[in-house]
Structures are given as C-alpha cells and as structure tokens.
Write a protein that binds this DNA or RNA. Structure first.
Length: 569
DNA sequence: AGTGCAACTTAGAACGGTTCGA
DNA sequence: TCGAACCGTTCTAAGTTGCACT
C-alpha cells in the first residue's frame, strides 16, 4: 500500500536520493539462527555419536568429541564433490579439523587418508532421503514454518517503511569453498556467535536481544551506511553484512542512480573515446597504458582489475591486472590484421577467451608494453585501478571503470531492440528478438554457463514435438482441402491454430539452441537499465511478466512505474 | 603514491519447488 | 502418476570503489 505513495515521478526519486543519509531504522528483529545451531549442537550429543573409522587399528571406531565430530560431518556431507579429492582442500581441512580435536584425538588421528567417513556420509544421505519422502502435509508444515520465520525475522522498518531484508540468516559454519583454484578451499568457516555481531539501527529503536547469557559485540547507530548487521568472517578477514532486499527503496534508488550515471556517459562517450585514441600517441608510457586499458574496458567490457594479494585468493585478473601471459599478439590471423588473443581467468575464475582485431596503434603499443617482459609480468606496469579511476573522474563526474560495462550493456540492448524488433511479429517472435538482444549483451559481458547436462536430449525432445506438430498441420491442411464449403471456415481456423502452435515451438527451439552456453540472468539483473525493457514492453504490447518474473518486477518496480513507451536509454 | 579497510555491487552454484510430457 | 526438465530462490564468494592514514 505504501509503495504508491513513496514511488512517484522520476523527480521525487531524484530529490530523495540527493538528501543522502537515511533517517530512521528500527529493527523488527534479527534471526536467531545462531541460537538454533547451538541447540542442534547440543542435541547431537544425546544422539548416538558418529564414528570415524580409523585405519591404523582395523575395525576400530572412534567416538569423537562434539567439536571434532561437527567438523568431520562438514567433510562427510561433501564427499560426493570433486573438490574434496583435491590436495589443497584436504590439507586445509585436516589442519583446521585438528584444531578442533582433543589432545587424545589429535594424537590418534594423524592422517586424513586413514579416516573413513562413509558411515557419516550414509547417515546424511539417509536423512536427505527421508526428507524427500515426507508427505505433502509434512512438507506444507515446513513451508508454513519458513514463512513464519520470514515474517518474524525477514523485515525491518526503515524511514517508517517496512522493508524486506535480503539475507537475514547468519551464515552457518561449514567448510569454505572458493571458486576456481582457491588456496583456502577446505578451511573451516567458523560459527558466528553473538559476540561477533554488530547491530546498526537508530538510537530509539528496539533492537533484537542477544540470546540469553550472551552479548552483541556492539550496537551502533550509523545512519550513513545501509547495513543492519555485520560481522567479520574468518577466512579472508572481510566484513559480511546483512542488508535490505533489492526491492527496498534504498537499493532501488542506488540502482536508478547507477543507470543515470551510465546515461551521463552516453552524452560524453564520443569525447572520451576521441581522447583515449589520442592518448595512444602520448610521449608518456603511463598515459599510453591508461589509454589502451581504457580502450579494452570500453570495447571488450572488461572489469577494472584490482591487484590481489597472492596466495589469499584464486589467481584471476581484470583489465589493469592483465599479465603478459594472458595476451598473444598475431600480426595476422584468419585473414585479419593485428589480432589480439586474450586468454585469462576473470571473476569467479570464469575463462575469458577472445580473438579481437584491434587498431594498428593499439597493437604497436601492446608490443611495446610486452617488450623485455617475462610472461608473469604485468602488462600495464604503470597503471592500476586507482590511477585509472582518478583519470575517469576527471573526464566525467561519477565516472569509474565499471560504468563502461553498464553503459555498453544497456546501449547494446537498446540498439539491438530498436534494430531487430519487428512490430508485425506475434508475441513469441518478439520475445525471441528480446532474448537475442539480451544475448548480445551477455556475450559482450562474457556471462557464460556450462551447457546444461541434459541439453542435447531436451533439444531432441523439442524437435520430436515439432515434427509431430508438422504432421498434425499437414493432416489439418488435407482435411481443409477436402472439406465442404460450409465446413471450410471451421477447418481453416483449426489449421491456423496448429500453425501458431508450430511456430511457437520453433521459436522455442531456436531460442534454446542459441542460449546453449549463455547466461542471461546476470546482465538482466545488474547491467540492463530496466526502463529499456519496460518501455519496449509498453511499445509493443508485451506483458511485463513475459520479461520479468515476480522477484524481478519487485526489484525493478521503480522502472515499471517510471518508464513510458518512448523511453530511450 | 601506497596500503588497508569498509561498504557496496556483481556472480555462479546449489537447492528446491513447479511444470510438463510419457 | 511419476520422473525429468525447468525455473526461481537462496546462498555467499568475489569483485569494485572510495576513503583514511602514512
């Protein structure tokens, strides 16, 4: 009910966001999942304890202390995963597991390879089976309980608005799984206790009480930040936050601002491009490097690429942190001149592989940057993200490296939609056009996915359906021909209907085939100005539900309210 | 300029419920 | 009616950016 009052025109949003600090936050309550895990831990002692078979004394079981047992169960639950076989994972796990052992356990359990977790593993498999085998009623009951928990803990009051909290559950303990080749995989992610928790709310707010006998680390009242709760995590030592859902006012305003900045860039991108092209000729190496890096960020939508501490994370790079080994220069390749072959691991260790023809000047510069360097040397040794962003800030207020990704993603969607939407098409065909435009963006941003395991089979199934439909259509056409005049109209309608169904299936097949290795979700959620899609829907009479599901409509409510059919990015 | 921290956005994997076709 | 495929949701890791401090 409140939405309508709060969300009005574009202007009201702008005014509000200019004010800066939010005012009042009242915590309704914080989840007590920490309490629950305590109880669970406690209870497991009254159950028959798990055993680890220990190979040195054949046939002997070992009853573990509760702390060592819990950590062992984390490992047992993951046994089916490939990464538990990795040396780094095992080494890290075993080291942290031993820290939880009693001195007796420590002296007995000295080699992970001699531990047999299969009994534990079976126990959890059986548990998951029995969970699956629950009756409808039991499942319904759990669902209702989850809903109750959501209602009780999942909301807060900010500036007198009840807002949904995104991640209101404290992260449970477990074994850390980084992405890619992570040096810390397998380490124990420890349990968060009330003493780790900082609560942030307004002074007069009734904030949740810590579990009996415990204290929060701190209760503070900082209205310059948006988080409600924070704690420090033990793997990287970084801070974790509980924040609001994307549907909240505070997130929506930020999102809108982000796209407005990208639209600002649209106005001056020609100037900026002219400047960096000019800078390719600079006498100063640092300026040339800056200009070539910016060209990559603009043309290829690369991320900025901060330096990372070696050995703390997986070895991944972005633009500024590219190394010589990540590029191969080809004077000529497949009939094209000056081709740069990129091959590196980006965020989340997703591979970026691309062969790009570049301007001669860029090519010559790259040769220069790579001269007399080892493969593991930085390509841009006179550049980092801080230098680059400082330069961008001078070119346009609010401009940073990531704005280029947002800008290029959104402008591509807009251009593609303008170009390929055919107003004569029916709804499924128009949606195919939309998905194709979305795909162009996903390819630009390198949002890949592994082809679904069942891809080939599901394509085949679809083809079978199409063949059957074609058969059906042929039948209908024959019947139409032989039908008497009075039945013709009815027959004609019938075959029209079948034709439409066939067309729908064929569109579906094309869409799925083209989407084989591409993930659309990330760009849709984070890079594409939703007003482009809303306007497109309005212009071509497409129901918004065909483009955005419920959650997405909630997140983009501001755009759905705001954008008219003639909005252009 | 370099470093480290804090706060925020972006990301794919895993999970679990729903739908669809045999 | 059942299982496979699909699709949305949850989870939390992994980025970017700005700022304080030296």
């Amino acid at each position: 009910e409140d939405k309508g009052q709060e969300r009005g025109s574009c202007h009201r949003w702008q005014e509000k966001s200019k004010k800066g600090a939010r005012r009042e936050v009242e915590m309704v309550s914080l989840t007590s999942s920490d309490v629950k895990t305590w109880i669970q831990l406690f209870c497991c002692c009254s159950e028959p304890a798990f055993m680890v078979f220990y190979g040195l004394s054949p046939g002997k079981h070992m009853k573990l202390s509760p702390a060592a047992e819990e950590v062992a169960t984390f490992f047992a639950k993951m046994l089916d995963h490939e990464y538990t076989t990795k040396e780094v994972f095992q080494k890290n796990f075993f080291k942290d597991w031993r820290k939880e052992m009693t001195s007796e356990e420590k002296s007995k359990i000295t080699d992970l390879k001699k531990c047999d977790f299969s009994e534990m593993s079976e126990y959890f498999k059986a548990q998951s089976e029995s969970r699956k085998a629950m009756t409808k009623e039991e499942k319904q009951k759990i669902k209702e309980e989850n809903e109750r928990i959501l209602q009780e803990y999942g909301f807060c009051l900010m500036d007198n608005h009840k807002e949904r909290i995104a991640n209101f559950r404290i992260e449970p303990p477990g074994l850390f799984r980084g992405r890619g080749d992570h040096p810390k995989m397998g380490m124990l992610k420890r349990r968060i206790r009330p003493e780790d928790i900082i609560i942030n709310c307004s002074k007069d707010s009734k904030h949740p009480k810590p579990p009996p006998g415990t204290k929060w680390k701190e209760v503070r009242h900082d209205n310059k930040v948006t988080w409600l709760v924070s704690w420090t995590e033990n793997i990287q030592g970084s801070i974790k936050y509980i924040m609001l859902n994307p549907s909240s006012r505070i997130k929506g305003e930020k999102d809108w601002q982000k796209y407005e900045t990208a639209r600002q860039l649209k106005k001056c991108v020609d100037r900026i491009r002219a400047q960096y092209r000019d800078d390719w000729k600079s006498k100063e190496m640092r300026i040339r490097q800056r200009a070539v890096a910016l060209y990559f960020i603009d043309k290829l939508a690369l991320r900025a690429g901060n330096e990372k501490e070696e050995g703390e994370t997986a070895d991944t790079v972005g633009c500024c942190s590219l190394r010589v080994e990540h590029l191969t220069l080809h004077q000529e390749m497949d009939g094209q001149e000056y081709v740069v072959e990129f091959d590196f691991l980006g965020k989340d260790s997703i591979r970026y592989y691309n062969k790009v023809p570049v301007e001669k000047r860029v090519f010559k510069n790259l040769q220069l940057f790579m001269e007399d360097k080892e493969p593991e040397d930085d390509l841009f040794d006179r550049l980092n993200t801080s230098i680059l962003n400082k330069h961008l800030q001078e070119l346009m207020d609010g401009l940073t490296a990531k704005v280029f990704r947002t800008y290029n993603a959104s402008i591509t969607l807009q251009q593609q939609l303008n170009e390929i939407t055919n107003s004569e098409d029916n709804v499924p065909a128009k949606i195919l056009s939309y998905n194709r435009a979305n795909r162009a963006v996903a390819i630009l941003c390198n949002h890949q996915r592994a082809p679904p395991k069942t891809f080939e089979k599901s394509m085949q199934n679809l083809q079978t359906k199409i063949d059957a439909k074609k058969e059906q259509l042929a039948d209908a056409k024959r019947e139409l021909k032989s039908a008497k005049a009075d039945a013709k109209v009815r027959r004609d309608e019938k075959s029209k209907k079948i034709e439409e169904q066939l067309m729908k299936l064929e569109v579906q097949a094309t869409d799925r085939e083209e989407n084989k290795q591409i993930a659309l979700g990330t760009s849709k959620l984070n890079y594409l100005d939703p007003r482009i899609s809303v306007a497109w829907c309005k212009k071509f009479g497409i129901p918004i539900e065909k483009i955005y599901n419920k959650t997405q409509r909630e997140k983009f409510a501001w755009a759905i309210d705001m954008a008219e059919k003639d909005f252009q990015f």
